[in-house]
Amino acid sequence: MNGVDEAVRLHNAVVLLGSFPALAEASLVVKKGEIVLISGANGAGKTTLLRLCAGLVPLARGEASVLGFNLATQRKEAQAHVGMLGHANGLYLDLTAQENLQFWGAVVGASAREIALSAQRMGLHTRLLATTVAKMSAGQRRRTALAVLVIRRASLWLLDEPHAGLDAAGRDEIDSILREATSAGATVIVASHELERAGALATRRIEVVGGAIVERGAQ
């Protein structure tokens, strides 16, 4: 039975990519309001762990629930409360930043005011909002994707290298947004190689080693 104060519960979770066990009997409990840093070598299974929590990869064996929803049977219900920023930004390259925000706002039911506030928050000024994503720098795209994530108002934030490509101001802004989100009740799981930066933000750190999860304690 999943505890009401748990955002994520994995028990001996196995995820197969083809025949390769990207997650091998991984067990993890993340409490609501935590900021958990996932570290680990390339290919260890960090991204797969995030994708499992987002309901993007099927569970081969074991148990997994997110925000009380069983991922084997209630994946869609769980996804409605999850926001994910992966390596890709999930943007439409031929649309402007403003059009991307409006699209995602329409899809998730955000108001025009929420869209404007999130754009302002991520430093997307008028000229940048009118620029097509294809013409933006990597950092500007990341900011736009983060603005989309803010619009989602998710209960569980899953971030894969969120600081990548951002300047110092952008990095500070992310940290501030994530702290704000957790004080409003959200839970954040961040996979990052930047242990110093993301470690300062996290309340707890885990390491993924060969598809298994190793607890590294409170930060």
């Binding site: 987002a54 309901g55 993007l56 869609k76 219900e77 769980a78 996804q79 409605a80 409360h81 999850v82 926001g83 994910m84 992966g86 890709a88 930004n89 999930g90 943007l91 439409y92 390259l93 031929d94 995602w104 899809v107 998730v108 994503v133 989309v148 989602r152």
Partner: peptide, 17 residues
């Protein structure tokens, strides 16, 4: 192709729409 260029398809799935 416009959905997979920057992996927007995954974003749509995760948005639970």
């Amino acid at each position: 192709a416009i959905e997979s260029a920057d992996n927007a398809l995954d974003a749509i799935k995760v948005a639970g729409v």
